[in-house]
Structure formats: structure tokens, C-alpha cells
């Protein structure tokens, strides 16, 4: 048996490494760097019902061991994603992908999820209720257990594929929201999305990015993410995809010990387009170092 293999519900991944939404385009952009088929899966760029340009520039600022971004869900809209983006990826990646879905109303989430539900290439619907970079919707759904459950319940009613809810760390009680999603029928939880952050340019005395506040990610947020995965693992039975500052094979193992069944690598793809490939290559020797026979054995080991 493949010692890197993990399961997310009924879906088997050849390894737990998944590029995170928003850092990997629609996948094909990275095909010039390496063979995408080495990846466990990939979470595609957040998709909405209508096309979106996103926020004005500048959208990016660097931080210590991280980055803040305010892209604002730039994407061509679900119709164009299905017509143009998925077909471009199809010859380059054989396994199932994760469709990442955002919306500004429950109806929009349901519409976009239903469209992806019909696509063979898609294995999991990841419902992003945690984007901090849009004014309405996005995070507004992810910061209340009641709203999160409502989105989850309505999407579940409309689709057949597994639904993973992607949660925001910008809440006081992540456990309550994860539990509400599980009760509403979620098949899994992805966490965490970016933390709300800000950087100020000392020369101008003003925030650097155009939206002032923006999503903070990168290795700097890893301890917060590990803590939240650990807390949520204790409270729910559905699988967890751990996300937040993963840059090395050791980080993958740490997240899995906290309770993640698989992980997503985000900001690190932007610094090193080979990050996921390198992590996958490094996993066997790091597993050997820590005497791990099968990765699936260590899920939740820290508890």
C-alpha cells in the first residue's frame, strides 16, 4: 500500500498535499513547473456565479514570514470556469480536483455548487464562507454558526458530491461553527482561511493594500491554524483539511497529528512554485525520521 495515501470521506488521495485555493490559479498555470499528477488533489481558484475583477491594486503586502492579500475573488465566473478553465486543466491532471466556491447570497452558493456538481473532474465542493476580502457575503457567512449552517444545508440539498466547508479563523469560537456545519450535513471541514491583517506604509502613513485590511497567510499563522485544527478535531467526526502556513513536510505531519486528514499548501506556492512537489518528495524521509509507517496512522495523534 502507498504509505502516503489518505482518505477524505470516500475519496482516496495518493498523498495529502493539496495546493490551496487562490494560490494555484486553475492549476494549469503550474504545469510548466512540474507534472501536476504528483499532487494529492488541488483546490481551484475561488469561483463565483458572476465574473469578478476583484479589488483595486495594490493587493499584496509582505509581512514577517507571510503575506497579506486583498485579491477580492477575481475569477471569470462559473460559466467560464466550466467552459474554459476546467477543460484546460483536464489533460494535465488525472485525479479529482476540489472546486472552491464563493458567493454573496445563499442562492449564489447553491447555483455555483450545483454547476460544479455536474462536472466529472470535481471530487469535492469546498464552500468558502471565509473570504475576508469582499464587502458582503464571504466571511459574513463564516463568522456566525447559524449562517454557516444555513449555507451548508442549502448546498447539501442541491448537490451529490461531498461538501467541505472552508472556515474563517476570524471568530471567537471556531468549534461552534464547525459543529454547526457538521450538523447541517457537511462532509468535511477545511481550515483555516486567512486571518484579517493590515500593514501600513511608513512613508505615506497609510495602509499598503487598497482595501486597508486584508487576508494574512504564510508560515507566521501556522500555530493558530494547528491550534484550530486540534480544537475542531476534538469536536467533529468528519474529516478535516488543515491549512495555514504549511511550507515543509514537517508541517504536514504536524497538521496531521493535530487532526487533519489532508492539508493545503497556500502562500508557499507563491514563494516557491515547486513547494508542493518538494514537500511530497520530502515526506518519505521525514516519515522515516519520525518512524511513521503510514501517514494515515498519525491523524489526530496529538490528542
Amino acid at each position: 500500500m502507498n504509505k502516503l495515501e489518505v482518505k477524505l470521506g470516500d475519496l482516496t488521495l495518493k498523498n495529502p498535499v493539496i495546493p490551496a485555493s487562490g494560490t494555484f490559479g486553475f492549476g494549469y498555470e503550474f504545469a510548466r513547473f512540474y507534472d501536476l499528477n504528483i499532487l494529492g488533489s488541488m483546490s481551484l481558484k475561488g469561483t463565483t456565479k458572476d465574473p469578478r475583477y476583484g479589488n483595486p491594486l495594490p493587493r499584496i503586502a509582505e509581512t514577517e514570514r507571510g503575506i497579506i492579500n486583498a485579491i477580492g475573488l477575481q475569477n471569470p465566473g462559473i460559466d467560464a470556469v466550466i467552459a474554459n478553465e476546467l477543460p484546460k486543466l483536464k489533460p494535465l491532471y488525472n485525479d479529482k480536483v476540489i472546486a472552491n466556491i464563493s458567493g454573496f447570497s445563499v442562492d449564489e452558493y447553491v447555483h455555483t455548487a450545483s454547476m460544479f456538481d455536474k462536472e466529472d473532474q470535481v471530487g469535492i465542493l469546498e464552500i468558502n464562507i471565509s473570504c475576508p476580502n469582499v464587502k458582503a457575503g464571504g466571511m459574513a457567512f463564516g463568522t456566525s454558526a447559524e449562517n454557516a449552517a444555513m449555507v451548508c444545508r442549502e448546498v447539501k440539498k442541491a448537490v451529490k458530491k461531498p461538501v467541505f466547508m472552508k472556515l474563517s479563523p476570524n471568530v471567537t469560537d471556531i468549534v461552534a461553527i464547525a459543529k454547526a456545519c457538521e450538523e447541517a450535513g457537511a462532509d468535511g471541514i477545511s481550515l483555516i482561511n486567512t486571518m484579517l491583517g493590515m500593514r501600513i506604509d511608513l512613508k505615506t502613513g497609510k495602509p499598503i493594500v487598497s482595501t486597508k485590511m486584508a487576508g494574512f497567510s504564510g508560515p507566521a499563522i501556522k500555530p493558530v491554524a494547528v491550534r484550530m485544527v486540534y480544537q475542531v478535531y476534538e469536536a467533529v467526526k468528519i474529516p478535516i483539511i488543515g491549512i495555514g502556513g504549511i511550507a515543509t513536510a514537517e508541517d504536514v505531519i504536524e497538521f496531521m497529528m493535530a487532526g487533519a486528514s489532508a492539508v493545503q499548501v497556500g502562500a508557499q506556492n507563491l514563494v516557491n512554485p515547486y513547494a508542493c512537489r518538494d514537500i511530497i518528495n520530502d515526506l518519505p524521509k521525514v516519515m522515516e525520521k519520525y518512524r511513521i509507517e503510514k501517514l494515515s496512522d498519525i491523524i489526530g495523534k496529538a490528542h
Binding site: G22, T23, F24, G25, E29, F30, K45, Y53, G54, L57, P58, R59, I60, A61, I67, N69, I71, Q74, N269, L270, V271, P273
Partner: peptide, 27 residues
Amino acid sequence: EARMGCGFGGCMGCSCKTLTGYKRICV
């Protein structure tokens, strides 16, 4: 010139509007 996240089209950090659609300054 733009503030870029990645420099190769992964993040959409440097997208701009053009008369022929949105373009990433880096790609």
C-alpha cells in the same frame, strides 16, 4: 511595474484592466 505576490500567475495579485480584458502584469 506592480507589487507582485508570485510573479508567475498564481495569485492574481497584479491583475489590471485592459481594453482586451483583465491581464496579470506578471504573465
